[in-house]
Design a protein around this nucleic acid. Structure first.
Lengths: 342, 342
DNA sequence: ATGAAAGCGCTAACAT
DNA sequence: ATGTTAGCGCTTTCAT
């Protein structure tokens, strides 16, 4: 059998309590005892029994708070599925998940929701934060209360956190650029429809895309970069304007929300199948566009995995006191075409 | 707090032992007691505490046997990393992993190795099986001993198993076909280098590829399909022959092993950058070819995840008695280009 | 058929 | 600073 805390106690000639104190840095132990106990533990290659740890800790009635800006954003459908899956899995550990969904990016509302969750005595928080200093302050406060924080899909600067789960946005853009380069065989005039220049993820995608075009595809020109603010109606109008004003455009890169609106414009103008179109993510509508050959390829970010992993990260910390290896857990930028959806 | 076996016992006016017997179908309980206990459990929505279950069961000293045909096959490097990661994670549960690596596809050797592992008293088996009836028989025997079997990367027909973890080979081929269609803009003469017509995964890839070409790309011709037997030397020779005998070929699809040898031939002939090349998997060498623009894209199958998930599947069964939702856990067919590697 | 109780390894409250 | 002990929820053995 594996070595236990009890064996160490016997060998060191102390009680199990003392061993526990040393091995978990609870303090209040003599230098001497600490040294011998640590030595013995190392010699015997002691590995705490996680099941026992978990069981002993299980009185606490744990709830994980989840706060996502998923309202009206179909991208989050799969993130939520991932969260639900994780929730189901950890139900056997009697851990609850309290989920709050917000629409839009209102700082006040997000602050309020965080406070609400904290008042509910959550033991961990998963959040898609707005990149704002007020939020950052609040999250640090939460973290200092001993409530681990995991940022999901979007990150925020200047906070102490357990980890971030999401994609590498720059690589996402680069991948889209390379893809467009290949399918146009290096000749194209492209229009970019981004979400907002104030959203870090969006600008990083645009930058990555342009980098690749500049470095590898001299005969591809970026004609215009327009903002859609993740809104279908605006995307529709911008796309129409873009295509009508720049007849030379024969490729589009949608790197944020509002894609459905944009495609609607393309269809109305009768430009489907005439333009090469690269998008991001694979909502149900985008899948349809892929099937129909209207969208050539889309660069996805494993939304299900994002939701699932974020919860599991908190879970592992709470139950097993396990920390992630890296602070930033990047999901793959997956290129999808007609045949490798799902 | 959540409902426990003890509460049910009190409500039913029986002992915890009896509740345990009923809830785990151990038999030896009166009809009457059984009925009331089940009713109460259902009413209270009883969910066993998995940590407690695991702890109580933890005396048994569990070892998971792993048998992979990884010898001399760089594809398996990442599968092994995934296995190692899972191994590390479950070490805290005092579960050991005993790994045996085999080279080639010799039935006798695989049988022998299975027996060896079983003699070691393993509690679960992860295997890349040869699709052969003798192996199938043996695996059924193992399964009937109460040792759950998970097939990894390759599957086998006619066995009872806990699950299969690997990719959908047909979709892999279809994806490659679509990709080639797009980057050649539908005009190409392509040579296919497969592994062996006797390997299910390989033929499924070829079939998927051809399906898509036939249905969507009338101006793409498949000139030849040659076997490499996953061997670099043979792949080298076949590629040379292929390209010299068919000067019209301007695209290649490598859908199995031996890719390094094939690329060597391409380079020697000075055809790099003149051919569009699609491969499978992303070994270190293939990554280099992508960086250099020699290979255009590769269709991968999440090897790390395959290794990791296979172990976790067995783990969840052994520790928590959890069954997978589906027998076939397909990994994504991930298209990778220069910029979305890793 | 059923109950009682010891134990899995660790934690935490209390005692010294 | 250190020891003692009663759990955590479930399984299993031994009585009855």
């Amino acid at each position: 059998m594996a070595v236990t805390i009890r064996q160490i106690a016997e060998l060191a000639g102390v009680s199990r309590g003392t061993v526990d104190r040393v091995l978990n840095n609870r303090g209040g132990v003599s230098q001497e005892a600490e040294k011998t106990i640590k030595r013995i533990a190392k010699e015997l290659n002691y590995k705490p029994n996680l099941m026992a740890k978990a069981l002993a800790n299980s009185q606490k009635g744990t709830t994980i708070g989840v706060l996502v800006n998923s309202g009206g954003n179909p991208f989050f459908d799969k993130v939520l599925l991932g969260i639900a899956k994780a929730q189901e899995e950890i139900a056997g550990f009697h851990i609850k998940v309290k989920k709050v969904e917000l629409t839009g990016y209102n700082i006040e509302k997000q602050l309020y929701a965080i406070n609400q969750l904290v008042d509910l005595q959550i033991s961990g928080l998963v959040i898609t934060p707005i990149n704002d200093s007020t939020i950052a302050e609040k999250l640090n406060e939460v973290n200092n209360k001993g409530i681990p924080v995991v940022t999901l899909n979007a990150d925020i600067t200047g906070i102490e956190k357990l980890g971030f789960v999401g994609c590498n946005y720059e690589k996402s853009g680069q991948t889209a650029g390379e893809l467009l380069g290949q399918i146009t065989q290096g000749n194209a005039t492209v229009g970019i429809l981004t979400g907002s220049n104030k959203m870090l993820g969006h600008t990083m995608r645009v930058d990555g895309f342009q980098q690749v075009i500049e470095q590898s595809y001299p005969n591809i020109t970026v004609a215009r970069i327009l903002e859609t603010f993740d809104d279908d109606q605006i995307a529709y109008e911008q796309t129409k304007k873009l295509l009508l004003e720049n007849q030379s455009i024969n490729a589009l890169y949608y790197c944020a929300g509002g894609i459905d609106g944009g495609i609607k414009a393309v269809l109305e103008l009768g430009y489907a199948h005439k333009l090469k179109i690269i998008t991001v993510d694979d909502t149900d509508n985008i899948k349809q566009y892929l099937y129909q050959g209207i969208v050539n390829a889309t660069v996805c970010q494993q939304p299900f995995k994002q939701g699932y992993d974020a919860i599991k990260l908190v879970f592992n910390k709470l139950i097993y006191n396990q920390l992630p290896e890296k602070k930033h857990l990047y999901t793959q930028n997956e290129i999808k075409v007609k045949f490798n959806l799902d």
